[in-house]
Write a protein that binds this DNA or RNA. Structure first.
Length: 112
RNA sequence: GAAGCUAGCUAGACAGUCGCCGUCACACUUUGCUUGCCAGUUUUCUGGCAUAGCAAAUUGGGGAAGACCCUUGCGGUCUCCUUAUGUGAGGGAGGAAAGUCCGGGCUGCACAGAGCGAGAUGACGGCUAACGGCCGUACGCAGCAACUUUUAGUUGUAAAACUAAAGGCCAAGGCGAGGAAUAGGGCCACAGAGACGAGUCGGUUCGACCUGUGAGCACGCUUUUUAGCGAGCUUGCGUCGAAACGGGUGAAACGCGGUAACCUCCAUCUGCAGCAAGACCAAAUAGGCUGGCAAUAGGCGUGGCUCGCGCUGUCAGCGGGUAGGUUGCUUGAGCGCAUGAGUAAUUGUGCGCCUAGAUGAAUGACUGUUACGUGUAGCAAUGCACGACAGAACCCGGCUUAUCGGCUAGCUUCACUC
């Protein structure tokens, strides 16, 4: 039985966590997303999200994008290696773009 | 029934899979003691149940405090603090959560009292914790429908009906920074001669100046004779002075006009900052204070050199304070129903209810069925696409702005029936 839960331990919380990922400067990207990552000693992958106010002005849009990306991470976390992952949104996407975003996320995950 | 307006409610529904954040209950391990109940027993006491309270140990997660060990490591052991874990139940964005424009609560700082300054408000009365909000009344402004007047057109024998335009009166409803202009200062577009002590300009009349100039008349002189020069009178223009009248304007004209949304005056109100407020716990590193030890040596600076002066060690404790954590944190001017008071805003009483508390930031993602609306294809059945504005961040009362629709109630006008 595979667990798909996403407890608090699987999230990047501290400012130090984020800045250490940024300092490693490992970066892959496509049209929608930018992923920065850093191998870690923990058991599973950990996630941090960055959705800037600049990319989407409305809070509703930002919340949707955050939730979709968190959901995708949750469902795919066992295929991922043990890394600290920071996903940055480049471009606004809404409900009709879901499949496109899913493909973008999966293709980036394969490159990890 | 139709139209208009104003309030209030709502913000598609159901199911499945996988999740997130609080709350509650139970389980999360045992032992001992206290308490209560039951049974036996004369009592002491014994046994069982409840697990309410306390203590001890133990398992798991987390920890930033303390001690010890040696292999000196992102080590182990012990003490201490804290809670997790599993199952179940129940809850989990809005009418604007938005803009942050007003008013409060709450919190900290400041504060004898008074004054100056600054800001806000401004009919009258009321409501309220308070307000720049709301309610009522009066006034003013704009104005749709209806009604009505005039004109034009069409129909019609006519009565009249309809349509259009321009007015009148304008329901319900809407809008109104609305005190003082004799306390004072400033300003008043365009037009007009002139726009705020008033004078100037032009016209008319009178007088003066004509050494300025044009025209006319008559005179004198002449080698320009249809001309030139000189001097005179009248008159026009011009300059100066006086008088009364008066100026196609304009909202307003030698007036006790307007403007206070220019300053100002009057009345009332306002201390300042904000949950990143504030309170508690509290690493690492750096620095501070106190004490002990070492030491009067050495080093550095000042100086040409000496003396002198200043700085510089280590250990322990203390307090401030940063990251971080806990709290503030959701029970409140709360909501619903009934009923009393009041035209109403609002409020008294009774009963019932608990309704998000996140913090690199939860409240969801996807799929299916279906309702409604819109668009599109189609004769139709039906198919396809789309679904308003928008996301809590201490909490309330308002205002403003955005918004697909639906439902209910009230008010006004018109029509119909009785």
């Amino acid at each position: 039985m595979v667990e798909f839960r996403l407890p608090k331990q699987a999230k990047l919380v501290k400012t130090d966590d984020f800045s250490s990922v940024f300092n490693l400067r490992k970066r892959i990207a496509n049209k929608h997303l930018v992923m920065r990552y850093r191998p870690s000693d923990n058991k599973g992958a950990r996630l941090g999200l960055i959705v800037a106010k600049k990319t989407a002005k409305l809070a509703v849009q930002r919340n949707y994008m955050r939730r979709v990306l968190r959901e995708l991470f949750r469902l795919n976390q066992h295929q991922l290696p043990a890394v600290d992952l920071v996903i940055q949104v480049q471009k606004v996407f809404t409900k009709p773009d879901f499949l496109e975003i899913k493909q973008a996320f999966e293709s980036l995950c394969k490159k990890l």
